[in-house]
Write a protein that binds this DNA or RNA. Structure first.
Length: 423
RNA sequence: GUGAGUGUAGCUCAGUCGGCAGAGCACCAGGUUGUGGCCCUGGGGGUCGUGGGUUCAAGUCCCAUCACUCACCCCA
């Protein structure tokens, strides 16, 4: 029979890579729970309009990157291309949205975008997300950024840059857009790339983020949002930076940092690494104070970030599964049942291990055990069965001794303690 | 959506001017009557991505096609 290919841009995660993902997920839960963020799991499939309305009709994500299709009754559904919209929708549906106070959520899981795969970019990819709803204080911005930073530190990642900017709010942004349009219109259209010629009128802010060399040179002299913020936005931004400074979180102001999702306003940020190919953004986020209302909820402010696990995985080093505690080698069919009983008992005591189901030579079993890098090899054959014993061999020292079958866990305990996590 | 590159053993790859399909690693067995790693000997493994063409002869040249990779774009 012919084989069936997996879908382009979709990947199977085998060990040791899957171990890195367990590690990233465990650390996310460990850190985020300390900050009082609770795990929220939302559906992968949502009504298409949810994303069209929140992310923005004009964005690349909505225009050409979504997995959108009709269900059996003809309703348009979309596989989530990002997490925030679904979290907000769920939040609006929940009692939390009308009971006041601050809600903190994190989510883990797959996202889907129809793009050409390359290093650090897949069609199904995984994100760690966090969102805080109901608080517009600059301290909220600082909290969530510092939590992201703490998470990256906890993963042991170095050499990353936090870039930050403010996009203004509905009070100051329109004025700035107008000023920016005037500036762009004053330049020779020839210096723009094709995209920016179009954008310079429809979405001038995006031109600031263009990587084309012509646009870049031209933009260097453009007016900056940070110089044109209204009083409220300026105070907010200054306060965020002040708090980050006081907590020794290093950041770089990037006046050209513009996120690709339309719902951001005020604080936006990205974490960049030079070490993961051309897709350099490891994490990104920002404030979205108008979004809950735009999605039919009350006027509640919010801020959040997304962190790309595929990109983190490229940076993780030395995450390896711990070796198994034991491997039990069965040397005769008559010892098989007893062997399984022993193995089950050891697992009940917290030891991790397996048994070989094939009757093979001691040499062959030990080669297996050695290859699996287990700490100890237990041998059970006819001799041991007659004496009610098991041979316990420490694989690092080669020391071996016979112990009573009743005392195996005690014997293992003399060599090492049962482990309590997977890394 | 655009561009470039790569497809040969489980993995990494070599294969000259078109002339018998190769290496290293991995795997299995033996070197010890029931003892791993190092070493030695032997062994199993191939639709040379697929289809067509040129030729006495194609892994090698030509065409098509599929897959993968990287980059643009965009983003995490």
């Amino acid at each position: 029979m012919s084989r069936i290919n997996k879908i382009k841009g979709f990947f199977d995660l085998f060990p040791p890579e899957s171990t890195s993902y367990m590690f990233m997920e465990d650390k996310a839960r460990e850190i985020f729970l300390k900050y009082s963020y609770q795990e929220l799991r939302t559906p992968i499939l949502e009504q298409t309009e949810l994303f069209a309305r929140s992310i923005g009709q004009e964005t690349d994500v909505v225009q050409k990157e979504m997995y959108t299709f009709p269900d059996r009754k003809g309703r348009s559904l979309t596989m989530r291309p990002e997490a925030t919209a679904g979290v907000i929708r769920a939040f609006i549906d929940s009692p939390a949205s009308s009971s006041g106070g601050v809600s903190r959520f994190f989510t883990l899981g797959p996202m889907f975008r129809y793009e050409r795969p390359q290093k650090g970019r897949a069609r199904q990819f995984h994100q760690v997300n966090a969102e805080m709803l109901g608080e517009d204080s600059p301290y909220a911005d600082a909290e969530i950024i510092s939590m992201l930073w703490a998470y990256l530190q906890a993963l042991g990642l170095q050499e990353m840059t936090l870039e930050i900017n403010s996009l203004g709010c509905p009070l100051c942004r329109p004025g700035f857009d107008t000023e920016l349009k005037h500036f762009l219109a004053g330049n020779d259209p020839e210096v723009f790339c094709e995209d920016c010629r179009r954008r310079s009128d429809s979405n001038p802010l995006r031109v600031l983020d263009c990587k084309a060399s012509g646009c870049r040179d031209m933009v260097a002299g453009a007016p900056r949002i940070v110089d044109n913020l209204c009083q409220g936005c300026k105070e907010h931004f200054d306060k965020v930076l002040e708090i980050l400074n006081s907590f020794n979180i290093p950041f770089k102001l990037n006046p050209f940092l513009v996120r690709g999702l339309d719902y951001y306003q005020r604080t936006t940020f990205e974490v960049i690494s030079d070490d993961i190919g051309s897709q350099s953004a490891v994490a990104g986020g920002g404030r979205y104070d108008g979004l809950v209302k735009d999605l039919g909820g009350p006027e509640i402010p919010g801020i959040g970030f997304a962190c790309g696990m595929e990109r983190l995985a490229l940076l993780l080093r030395g995450i390896r599964e711990k070796p198994l505690d034991f491997y039990l080698a069965v040397l005769h069919q008559d010892a098989m049942h007893k062997a399984m009983q022993l193995v089950q008992r050891l697992r009940g005591k917290g030891y991790h291990g397996e048994m070989g189901f094939k009757i093979r030579s001691v040499k062959s079993h030990l080669r297996q055990a050695n290859k699996k890098k287990v700490k100890t090899c237990l041998l059970l054959g006819l001799d041991e069965m007659q004496k009610n014993q098991v041979q316990v061999k420490d694989m690092s020292t080669g020391v071996q001794r016979a112990v009573s079958q009743d005392d195996v866990e005690q014997a293992l305990g003399l060599v090492f303690q049962p482990r309590n996590n997977n890394f």
